[in-house]
């Protein structure tokens, strides 16, 4: 769409620039998620719909696994902002994915307290076990390995956040067991939060 119907322009030079968000299939929220978003919108002043962009993106990620271009467009429409505004936000925060990820995203904390307790070794071990590098997904599509910065559980270092749940006090030796039980038992295999660790 050009605003300049009368004006001639040179031919397009280059069309590709950065790696673009996957447009994905046409996207609309499921009725339940849409209702949930509408409920969230009531928390903010009516003229500040934009505030709900993070909740909306979480819902979209829940629905599709990652955030597609069409999802950004859909959210922009609902919140009355431009898709560029949404992409701006998506690209800023680390917890949104714009590409498909594995069933379990292993976020290994690499910041000081975890690193002092061997987080680097945990990552190396995970890489070796899954035959991937940080940022990649294994061939089965089960695990995506991501190195992240401080997760805020430094007393139980090193910590791995699997999707949204924590698995604490990891050691290079226990990594294999964690992967195996994740494969068989899903997220219930995780040590969970604070109390669970203390009880141990």
């Amino acid at each position: 769409m050009s605003f300049h119907p009368k004006m001639a322009y040179d031919a397009t030079f280059h069309k590709s620039s950065r790696t673009l968000a996957d447009p994905g299939p046409p996207f609309t929220f499921t009725p339940e998620r849409r209702a949930r978003l509408d409920e969230v919108l009531t928390r903010y002043p009516p003229d500040r719909k934009r505030s709900a962009v993070l909740p909306a993106l979480y819902l979209a990620q829940q629905q599709h696994g990652y955030i597609t271009g069409n999802a950004m467009r859909h959210i922009a429409e609902i919140l009355e902002i431009t898709p560029a505004d949404v992409e701006d936000v998506v690209s800023y925060y680390t917890m949104f994915y714009t590409k498909p990820v594995g069933r379990f995203v292993l976020n290994v904390c690499r910041t000081l307290s975890c690193a002092l307790n061997g987080a680097e070794r945990v990552t190396e071990e995970l890489c070796a076990k899954l035959h991937i590098k940080p940022g990649e997904t294994d061939t089965s599509g089960t695990f995506t390995l991501v190195e992240v910065e401080c997760l805020g559980a430094c007393d139980r270092a090193p910590v791995v956040m699997v999707n949204d749940a924590w698995h604490e006090c990891v050691s290079p030796e226990s990594v294999g067991h964690m992967l195996d039980s994740l494969r068989t038992r899903g997220e219930s295999a995780l040590t969970g939060c604070h109390l669970a660790v203390e009880k141990r």
């Binding site: 069309k15 431009t82 560029a84 505004d85 992409e87 800023y92």
Partner: peptide, 18 residues
């Protein structure tokens, strides 16, 4: 129509879907 993509040292200017 223009936004900032990514953050920190990797920030760049871009439009949605280029």
């Amino acid at each position: 129509q223009i936004g900032v993509i990514n953050r920190g040292n990797g920030s760049e200017i871009g439009t949605f879907n280029d």
